[in-house]
Design a protein around this nucleic acid. Structure first.
Lengths: 221, 221
DNA sequence: GGGGGATTGGGTAGTTTCACCGGATGACGA
DNA sequence: TCGTCATCCGGTGAAACTACCCAATCCCCC
């Protein structure tokens, strides 16, 4: 409660939508004790600029070219643990919220939220607290409990191996086993094995349902 | 060239992201001869408010709850033919550009575009001209030519019958033919016929690709 | 009153997916 | 060294899907 009077919160924006960035910059510059010190248009750039600028808070989109916000955050928190990441996204789904938290994010605000909610989130996150939209957070908790109740493990994307995720990505794009096999230089049988294990881990029956799942969860963007 | 000096361009914003709207409002209010006179958070609201406010230009998102921007535009142009619609969207794809033009849109700007591009687009559209990002527009034309060359017509979602769309919805959710058949009280053969016609019309091979297509185009949410 | 599209269903044959079984290799830690 | 896991690949048989063909009904429109 002493530093904030003289030291404004230094913010970096990471979003590939230039128009949104400009709007945010204008909006936030009108708020006391906030200062936008930099911008990035993708995850990789965000990483580089954050190391250079060392902002207090990075406002991060999930969907970005080159490197998405979740990957960028995972890496960023390794290098700059003290830098807080606040996700600002259009995606209103639990799985992604889960993943942002796991990646080390401190908050999750929807683009459709009110302006003051964003500002409040920035303040809160900069103080080292966590900001999650109450309704969404509740849903996440409920979802988690449902999973624990229902079976044993929270069947999830996290269980997948790297190779399996790779295969899932391609399958989710609508590729056939054969096409995936060609792409990854594998036999069709191997792709089928991976696919089988993926469906088993996720508890999904049918490839169409798998594609639907992946799209719904935002595993492919 | 006479009216613009005294009469600013009256703009209405239609986007479900409140934060983006605020940013836009701030940005545009700094531009001479532009005035933001209203906002809407979905297509239906946009329709109602446009009739009430009669703006010169509606800046419209595509992805919105209740009613999407393309549907809203189709209806809006029937009621207020003189009102110009400028699409501001994240979707960088030709099919949607096609559809916005068909719906009566006067322009298409990506959210990742530079700010001045948006302002330029607004001016241009308000003058009754059309604004399309050159590279995208070029791609569209090329794409169109490719289609005409390759086969007959621009295969599209618009060609689907009501029943086919219904089947597509369910298939896109990951249901099997049998499940769809049960749901709609049909024989599997009928569902297969519909599915075959859908894939034929859309020029898609494989059900996984069909699901991916539907998700990508936002036919199911 | 006939033509055309939408909707429904069928046949046959071929391909793909999927479940359930198996094994070989290599990496990595206990 | 031994166990575990990821990755890779195979066989079999059932189920699902796909590509062709076809036809009956209904309804709308010219």
């Amino acid at each position: 409660m002493s530093v904030e009077f003289t030291q404004p919160v230094r913010i970096m924006l990471a979003d590939d939508h230039a128009i949104l960035r400009t709007g945010l910059r204008l909006m936030l510059s009108a708020v006391p004790n906030l200062e936008v010190v930099g911008e990035a248009t993708n995850g990789r750039e965000a990483l580089a600029k954050a190391e250079e600028l060392k902002p207090d808070v990075v406002i991060m989109d999930i969907t970005m070219p080159e490197m998405n916000g979740i990957e960028a955050t995972t890496e960023l928190k390794k290098r700059l643990p003290k830098t807080k990441v606040l996700f600002l996204t259009m995606h209103e789904n639990e799985e992604l919220l889960f993943r942002t938290v796991q990646a080390g994010g401190s908050g999750y605000v929807l683009k459709k939220s009110a302006d003051n909610e964003l500002v409040e989130a920035i303040y809160q996150v900069s103080r080292g607290e966590t900001f999650l939209r109450p309704d969404l957070a509740k849903q996440v908790v409920q979802d988690y409990l449902d999973r624990v109740d229902a079976g044993e493990e929270a069947e999830s994307y996290e269980d997948l191996t790297e190779r399996e995720r790779e295969v899932l990505q391609l399958l989710a794009m609508g590729m056939t086993n054969q096409q995936v096999a060609d792409k990854l230089v594998l036999s069709v049988r191997t792709v089928e094995t991976h696919r089988a294990r993926i469906m088993d881990k996720l508890g999904i029956k049918g490839r169409a349902a798998l594609v639907a799942y992946a799209k719904r969860r935002g595993l492919v963007l």
